[in-house]
Design a protein around this nucleic acid. Structure first.
Lengths: 232, 232
DNA sequence: AAATGCGTTTGATAAATATCAAATACGCTG
DNA sequence: CAGCGTATTTGATATTTATCAAACGCATTT
C-alpha cells in the first residue's frame, strides 16, 4: 500500500479515532485492489465476506428488477460501502459496480466484527456510520415520496454542485441511462427533464451541467434541510 | 414498571444479551409513559433527547411535505425507534405519532451512548439494529423504484398477513388516508387499488382485508426476497 | 468526406397517478 | 332508529411518467 493511501485511510472517519493496534490488525488482513470501469464488485444475494473501502474512483450501488437497473446510491472516495451487510452478517441487498477505474480496500468481514468487539472507539464509529447511512437512505425515500422526477433531478444537481465546491458547473461522470436510474426515471424522461431545467437557470452541455442562476434553480428545486443536507 | 413489562424489555433483542448492570443503568434513567391515540411524540427537526421503545400499542413514523403527510414506517411492539438519531446525536429526520393507545419507554439519549461505550454486547446489538433498520429502509426504497402502487399495496398486504400468522385476513388498524401515505399513494387511488386486488384473491370488508387465495395474490404481487423478506 | 455505431434527444402515444367533485357508506349521537 | 358528520368510494379529468419509434449528434473508422 502506498504511503499517501495509508494516510487517506487513517483520515477516514471510520478509522480515525481507533486504536493503532486495531487499525494495524484491520489493514494487515486487508487487500488493496485495482479495478477498471464497469466491473461488478458485488452481486445482490451474495454473502458479505469483505467490507469495501473505496480509496479512489467511483462506485455505484444498484439493483436489477425485471431486467431494469435502478441506482440505489453513488459512492465517492474515501468511504466504505456495504457496511450494513458486514455488520449484520447477511447477504447483500444490492449489487455494486465500478463506474471508473477504482482502487478498493477489501477487509475481511470477520476481522471487522472482531475489531468491533475489541475496540470501543471503532464500534462507536461503525455505529455512527451505520446511523448516517440509514439516515441518507431515509432522506432518499422522502425525496421519492414527495417529489416529481424533475424536482429530484434539480435537487441532485444542486447537491452535486455543493460537493464539488467548484460551484457553477458539474460534470456527470457516467452516461444518461445511469443517471436516470439514480434519479428514478427513464433515460427519455431524464432528457426531457434536463431540457425543462433549461428554463430554471441551467444549461446542458453534453455531460457538463452549467448552473447559470443558482438562485433560480433553487427556487424551482426547493431543497430541504432534512432531505438534501448531507450533514443533517 | 410492571413485572411482565420488564420481562418484555429484557426479551428485546436490543437488551437481551447485555450485562445486567448496564441494563439496570438504562432502565434506571428511563421513563415509562402512556399515550392515547394521535399524540405527536416526535417532531421532525427536534433534537434526539430520548431513545424510544414501544412497549405496547402502535406508532407511525412520518414526514410532512407541502401540507401532505407521507408514512415512512410503522412501528410494532416491542421495538425501538429513532435509534439512528440517538446514536448520531442529530435532529430527527421525521415525526412520530401514536396510532393507538401506547406505552413507551423513554431512555435518555446520553445514557444510551454512555452504555454503548461501556458494554460491548450492547454496542454490538445497537450496530446490528441500525444495520437492520438501514436494510429495511433500502428495501422500501427498492419497492418504490421498481413497483407500481398496486404492487406495493399487494406486497404490503402479504407482509402483514405473514406477521399476523393468523394468515388469511388482516385488520388495518388505521384509516385509509394513513395507509395510503405508507403505500405511497393517495386515498383515492388506494381505494381503486384495493378494488383492483379483488380480482386477485382478496376481499375488502371495511378495515378487514380477507385473503381468499394467497397464491393468486402472490402471483400478482411477486414478492421478492431482498425487498419483502424482513429476515433477509 | 462518407459510413458506421452508439448514445442521446425528440415525438407520439399509452399507462399510471393525482386532483377535484360528487355520491355513497358508515359510525356515532341524540 | 333517524339524523348527522366523517370516512370512503366512485367518476371525470388533468398531470406525470413510461414506452415505443424515429431522428439526431457526435466520434471513430474506412
Amino acid at each position: 500500500m502506498r504511503p499517501h493511501e495509508l494516510t487517506q485511510l487513517t483520515a477516514l472517519p471510520l478509522f480515525s479515532e481507533m486504536e493503532e493496534e486495531s487499525l494495524a490488525s484491520l489493514l494487515d488482513a486487508a487487500l488493496l485492489q485495482q479495478f477498471p470501469t464497469g466491473v461488478i464488485l458485488i452481486r445482490e444475494g451474495d454473502h458479505a465476506d469483505f467490507l469495501h473501502v473505496l480509496v479512489e474512483g467511483l462506485v455505484e450501488i444498484f439493483t436489477e428488477q425485471n431486467g431494469v437497473e435502478w441506482g440505489i446510491s453513488l459512492v465517492n472516495p474515501v468511504s466504505t460501502f456495504i457496511l450494513a451487510a458486514v455488520v449484520s452478517d447477511q447477504p447483500y441487498l444490492n449489487s455494486a459496480r465500478t463506474l471508473a477505474n477504482s482502487r478498493i480496500l477489501l477487509i475481511p468481514a470477520q476481522r471487522v466484527r472482531a475489531i468491533f468487539d475489541r475496540d470501543v472507539a471503532f464500534a462507536r464509529i461503525v455505529a455512527r456510520e451505520l446511523a448516517l447511512a440509514y439516515r441518507s437512505s431515509v432522506k432518499k425515500l422522502k425525496g421519492y415520496m414527495a417529489r416529481s422526477s424533475v424536482e429530484r433531478l434539480a435537487n441532485w444537481i444542486l447537491a452535486e454542485a455543493r460537493k464539488d465546491a467548484a460551484q457553477g458547473n458539474i460534470v456527470v461522470p457516467f452516461d444518461r441511462g445511469t443517471l436516470a436510474s439514480h434519479i428514478g426515471t427513464t433515460r427519455e424522461n431524464l432528457s426531457r427533464s434536463l431540457a425543462l431545467l433549461t428554463d430554471h437557470g441551467v444549461r446542458i452541455r453534453g455531460r457538463e451541467i452549467v448552473i447559470d442562476a443558482k438562485d433560480q434553480l433553487e427556487a424551482f428545486a426547493r431543497p430541504q434541510r432534512f432531505i438534501d443536507d448531507p450533514t443533517s
